[in-house]
Each structure stands twice: as structure tokens, then as C-alpha cells.
């Protein structure tokens, strides 16, 4: 492990090259997020025997939304205007520091588990405050539900990744990925399998998919995320949609690279990065496909059953850390 990190530090490419890689990661997440959503919609439609919209529908929707008129609810403050921007910005910074394509962080050690999880929390807090800003029943209700679910899923996410951090002796994400690459035997260790299950549950909750939330619902009373952003329209809604899809791509990419780290670039030229991009796209598409199939085959849980699912995830994550300590 120490060796892996030491080589990371020793053969670092220039600062500009690292910034370039980070920007490429952000672009990949910005473009890839809506495409992943399109892919999931397509797979769901096919599984239900429909044709479904094209995979690029998400991008077309964004294009349509940004050209529309900006409308905000009366009584809103600057928070309503800032919230979508903060959501996108926090997801972009998280994407820049997460080891999606390469294990070389843009700054030595900027890419900590805690940074990424709390940047995601920053986006959730911004959305919830935006939901409360209009002073309507639905916005507040959605914010309350989203924060409740977030309050249980964030710790599960943190502890789930910490199970891997304990194994790798660092909470630095590139360090964890590099260590997993160096020790293929770890991938089948019990704590990894437990943590994988925990994190899958968390990712489904964080990205608001069935069985936790239904992104395509039109009934306000059952909404979680959609109720919170009910007042967003036009460019604001485009930002919220983009931010949410970026979070999906980021979380799936993180999950893929933490548990299946093959293909992450550890050495470094332009062509290798492109290959890493292709591998990442394949891995996240596979994960997204699985989530879509789960969505087709399960029903949405009642709101008050969701915490039980998430608490299960949290307990699994804690058990994963414990297992790691016991089997060390």
C-alpha cells in the first residue's frame, strides 16, 4: 500500500496535465450523466415491451430547458437562484477529485472520501434549502423527506467506503483504488462484499431510484426529490436535472472503480486516458443497466419502510468495517 502511494507521488505528471485530467472527468460526468439516465429509461422501456425514448433524450431535454424562460416562484430569495448552481458546482468538484479515470488526484490528497461525501451533502443541503425557499407545502415536504432519507443514507455511504479505507489504511480515494489494483485478492474479501451491498442500497437512495423514490412520478404526495424541485423551471430545472444526473454518474463511477478497479489509469498518457474513459463508460453502463432492471421488477417502498432499508445498509456497512478489523 505504502509503495502504491509512493509511486503515485513520485511519477506525478505536471500540474496542468492533472488539471486537464480532472476537467476531462468533469466533462465525462456532465455528458455521461444524462446519457446514463437515457440508457436506464431505454432499458426500462424495453423490459416493459415499449420502444422508449432515444438514449440521448436527457441531453435533448437539457437543451430544451436551458432555452426556456426562467421562472421563479414569488417570495423566493437568492437561495432559489443559487441552489441549482451550488448543486452542479458541488457535483463538478466531487467529479474532479474522484478517481474516475486516473488514480492521480488533481492535488495530492484533495480526493478524500470525506470530501466527496460531504460535497454530495452540500448539494443535498442546497436543494433542500431551495425547496424550502418558495414557501409552499410540496417544496417543504420534499425537502423534509429528502433530508430524512439523506440523514440515514449519508452515514451508510461514509461508513461503507470507510470499510475499504480501513483495508487500504488511507481514506484517500485514489489511494484506495490504487491499493485495490495492487491487491486483487482484496476484491473478494468479506468486508468488500458487505460494503458493496451497503453501497448499492445507498446509491439507489442517493440518486432517488425505485424502490426508494420514483423519478417519473406525477403524483405530488408520493414525491420526494420531485416535490423538492417542483418550483424549478427553465434553466434552473436544467441545472437541477443536470446536477442530479451528474451525481448518479459520479456515484456509479465511484462504485465501479472502488469495487472493480480494472481499467483505471495508473500510468498516464492521453490514449490510456481515453481507454480508461471507455472502460469507465462500460462499467457504469453495466451498473446502470442492473439498477434499471431492479427498477422494473420491484415496486416503490412506502416512505416509512425506506429508513429500514437504509438502516440495513448502514448496519451492513458497520459490519463490513468490523469484519475487516476481525479478519485482518
Amino acid at each position: 500500500m505504502t509503495g502504491a502511494l509512493a509511486t503515485l507521488g513520485a511519477a506525478s505528471p505536471s500540474l496542468w496535465a492533472r488539471i486537464g485530467t480532472s476537467v476531462l472527468q468533469v466533462v465525462a460526468v456532465v455528458v455521461g450523466g444524462p446519457l446514463l439516465l437515457g440508457l436506464m429509461a431505454k432499458i426500462r422501456a424495453r423490459a416493459e415491451g415499449r420502444m422508449g425514448p432515444p438514449i440521448t433524450q436527457g441531453l435533448s431535454d437539457l437543451r430544451k430547458l436551458v432555452r426556456k424562460e426562467a421562472i421563479r416562484a414569488e417570495h423566493t430569495s437568492a437561495v432559489a437562484a443559487l441552489a441549482p448552481l451550488v448543486l452542479v458546482a458541488s457535483a463538478a468538484v466531487a467529479a474532479a477529485v474522484t478517481p474516475l479515470l486516473t488514480t492521480r488526484p488533481v492535488v495530492a490528497g484533495g480526493a478524500d472520501v470525506f470530501v466527496v461525501v460531504y460535497l454530495l451533502l452540500m448539494g443535498s443541503v442546497a436543494l433542500a434549502l431551495g425547496g424550502l425557499d418558495a414557501g409552499t407545502a410540496f417544496g417543504g415536504m420534499g425537502a423534509s423527506r429528502a433530508m430524512t432519507i439523506g440523514a440515514i443514507s449519508e452515514p451508510a455511504l461514509l461508513v461503507g467506503i470507510l470499510a475499504l479505507a480501513v483495508q487500504a489504511r488511507t481514506s484517500n480515494l485514489p489511494g484506495i483504488v490504487a491499493a485495490s489494483l495492487a491487491h486483487p485478492g482484496w476484491l473478494a474479501s468479506p468486508q468488500r462484499l458487505l460494503a458493496l451491498v451497503a453501497l448499492v442500497v445507498v446509491v439507489i437512495a442517493e440518486t432517488g431510484r425505485i424502490p426508494v423514490d420514483n423519478p417519473s412520478t406525477h403524483l405530488e404526495l408520493t414525491m420526494i426529490h420531485e416535490a423538492m424541485v417542483l418550483e424549478q423551471a427553465g434553466p434552473d430545472l436544467a441545472l437541477v436535472t443536470l446536477g442530479e444526473s451528474m451525481r448518479l454518474a459520479l456515484l456509479l463511477g465511484l462504485l465501479a472503480n472502488l469495487f472493480f478497479p480494472w481499467g483505471v489509469d495508473a500510468s498516464g498518457s492521453g490514449l490510456v486516458l481515453l481507454a480508461a474513459l471507455a472502460v469507465l463508460a462500460a462499467k457504469t453502463a453495466a451498473l446502470a443497466g442492473m439498477i434499471a432492471l431492479v427498477e422494473v421488477s420491484t415496486a416503490k417502498l412506502r416512505l416509512f419502510r425506506v429508513p429500514e432499508l437504509l438502516a440495513g445498509g448502514f448496519v451492513l456497512a458497520v459490519v463490513a468495517v468490523t469484519t475487516g478489523l476481525v479478519t485482518r
Binding site: V125, L129, L132, G140, M147, A151, E154, P155, L158, F314
Partner: peptide, 22 residues
């Protein structure tokens, strides 16, 4: 970990209900 999420909920409530909305 668990207080992190709960604290965020508490203070979104304080800030959002107290200072935002009508």
C-alpha cells in the same frame, strides 16, 4: 457519521424554515 446527517437535517430546518419561505 450518523450525527453528520442528523445535524444537516436539523440545520436545514433551522435555516430553511426560519429564514426562507414566507
Amino acid at each position: 457519521a450518523i450525527t453528520g446527517g442528523l445535524t444537516a437535517t436539523a440545520f436545514v430546518k433551522a435555516l430553511g424554515v426560519g429564514f426562507l419561505g414566507q
